[in-house]
Design a binder for these strands. Structure first.
Lengths: 161, 161
DNA sequence: GCTTATGGGTTCTTTTTTGGAACTTATTAG
DNA sequence: CTAATAAGTTCCAAAAAAGAACCCATAAGC
C-alpha cells in the first residue's frame, strides 16, 4: 500500500495516518502545540531538512490541520497555525507523550510536565467513555462493524475467535 | 535526525515515535487490538510486504510491545501478543481513530463502532485530567520543563511569547 | 516416496523517500 | 555594494520500502 491509497482505506486509523502517519509530521504538530509557528523555528528545533519540512507543512495545510497566516507584508511572510481540526489532534499527541513518559523515560523522568489550568495540578491524560464517563481500557471495549459498512467490505474485522 | 537517534531525544513524543512512528507499526498494532496474532494474517489484512512486516514485528518485540508466544511445536510456530506495555498504547490508537472518525470519514460514517462493555453504549474516547477528572483540551494545559530537566537542554521549549 | 500446502521468514532488484548541501527571491540593514 | 533574513526550491547521494522470488521444516494427499 502506498501513501496515496491510505486515506481511502476502510479504517479511520489508516485515514488519520494518511495525514499524521510519519514521525516528522507528528513532531511538527508537537511544536505547533508548544507555540512554534515559523518555518525556520521548526527547522532549528526539529533538525529536519527544509525539503521534508516544506513538504509536511504543505500536506498539513492541504488536510486542514494548519493554516498559513501572513504576519507581515513586503516581503510577504506567513506562519503556520493550528486550525480547530488541528487542535483536535491534541488528545492523540498527549496519549503518545504519556506512553513515552511511562515507558521510554530515563532516570531524569519526563522532560515535560503538563499542568491542568483548571485544577493547577501536574496531570496525565486519562481516557474515559463519552457516554458514562468511566475510564476505559482495551479490555473494556467491544468492536463492531459500523452501520454504514455492513457487508460492504469483506473482512473489515478478523474472524471472531 | 535518523531513526536511531530518535529514542534518545529529550522528548517523550520522539521516543514514542521511535517505537510506533511509522504507519505500518501503528496498523500492525491496530490489528493486534482486533485480535490478530499471526504473521500471515497480518500480511493478508495489511497489504504490507513480508519484509517490512518482519522488520516491524521484530522492532515491536525488541521494545517490549509484543511478545512471541509458541502456539505449536514441530514445526515451531509462534504468534505475537500484546504485552502490558502494548495494551497501554490503546488510548493513543483510540485517539487517532476518533480523529479519523470525525475528520476523515465519508458518507458511510465510521467503519468501526466501539461499544463500552461497562455501559453498553457506542462510545468515543474523551480525555480527562488524571487529577480532577475534568475534560481537558489543548487550551487547558500549561507546559513546563520537567523537574529532572531544568537547565539540562537549551531550548526544550520555545521562547514564551 | 513424490508433490503440494502451510507458516514464517530471507534475499534480490527496483522504486520512493530522505538527508544534505547549494541556490533563489524579496526586502531591509549597514 | 554587501550581507542578512525568511521561506522556500533544486540537485544528488543514501536509505528505506515495494514487489517478487526463494528457503526450510513439517504435514497431508495420493
Amino acid at each position: 500500500m502506498r501513501w496515496e491509497e491510505l486515506d481511502q482505506q476502510p479504517c479511520s486509523l489508516s485515514r488519520t495516518l494518511a495525514v499524521v502517519g510519519d514521525r516528522w509530521t507528528l513532531l511538527v504538530l508537537r511544536d505547533c502545540f508548544l507555540g512554534v509557528r515559523r518555518f525556520d523555528e521548526f527547522e532549528k528545533r526539529l533538525g529536519v531538512t527544509r525539503h521534508v519540512l516544506a513538504d509536511r507543512l504543505k500536506k498539513l495545510v492541504e488536510y486542514g490541520v494548519l493554516v498559513k497566516v501572513p504576519y507581515q507584508q513586503r516581503p510577504l511572510r506567513e506562519e503556520y497555525r493550528l486550525t480547530e481540526r488541528g487542535l483536535e489532534l491534541h488528545p492523540a499527541i498527549m496519549a503518545l507523550v504519556s506512553w513515552g513518559d511511562r515507558h521510554m523515560a530515563d532516570e531524569r523522568g519526563a522532560p515535560i510536565r503538563h499542568v491542568h489550568k483548571g485544577c493547577g495540578q501536574a496531570m496525565r491524560p486519562v481516557m474515559v467513555c463519552s457516554e458514562c464517563a468511566e475510564p476505559v481500557s482495551a479490555r473494556d471495549i467491544l468492536v463492531q462493524v459500523g452501520e454504514g459498512w455492513e457487508g460492504q467490505v469483506g473482512e473489515l474485522l478478523p474472524a471472531a475467535r
